[in-house]
């Protein structure tokens, strides 16, 4: 399931919803990304996430299908927020459920790596006075590259 939204989310409620009535799930892995108050050593007062409505949902659904094809997942959820966020706020979450823990752990890491590098979100950081767009980083591509099929 894909949720792209401006409002905050309650992870416990999301997991409860995802697993309600299910007795085939042996484990649930979740990862939550937060806004940090430091970027490249500089103070961050706020961050604004911009995205491409329509394309974002399509791309997230495609990577979720990819994860489900690679690992035997019983259920999955990707939540990604957009708009203005303050340090400490939740940005995104990935939840994966499977009969066994390994698939859930690996699929969650795969999805987070992908979200970090390939999802169409752009970040405008503010230090309270000036704003600047965050540039793409090679190190993230390296993290996502671990999952490319050789």
């Amino acid at each position: 399931m894909i949720k792209v939204q401006q409002q905050d989310f309650d992870l416990a409620a999301e997991i409860a919803e995802l697993t309600r009535g299910r007795t085939d799930i042996g484990g649930v892995v979740s990862f939550t990304g937060l806004v940090r108050d430091v970027s490249d050593g500089a103070k961050v007062a706020a961050m604004t996430l911009e995205h491409y409505p329509g394309m974002t949902e399509k791309q997230l659904a495609a990577i979720e299908r990819d994860a489900c094809a690679r690992w035997p997942l019983s259920a999955s959820l990707i939540i990604h927020r957009y708009g203005r966020l303050m340090p400490g706020e939740q940005i995104m979450a990935v939840v994966t459920a499977s009969a066994h823990r390994q698939a859930a752990f690996e699929a969650a890491e795969f999805l987070v790596d992908w979200l970090k590098t390939k999802a169409p979100f752009w970040k405008l950081e503010s230090d309270g006075a000036a704003e600047s767009w965050v540039e793409a980083r090679d190190s993230d591509d390296t993290a996502a590259g671990r999952w490319e099929k050789g």
């Binding site: 961050v44 987070v112 540039e135």
Partner: peptide
Amino acid sequence: IAFFPPVTGGRDDKGSAAGF
């Protein structure tokens, strides 16, 4: 047709304020 910069991530140790 849409035009945009490469999507932005951030390293865990410094990178952007997106802490993941």
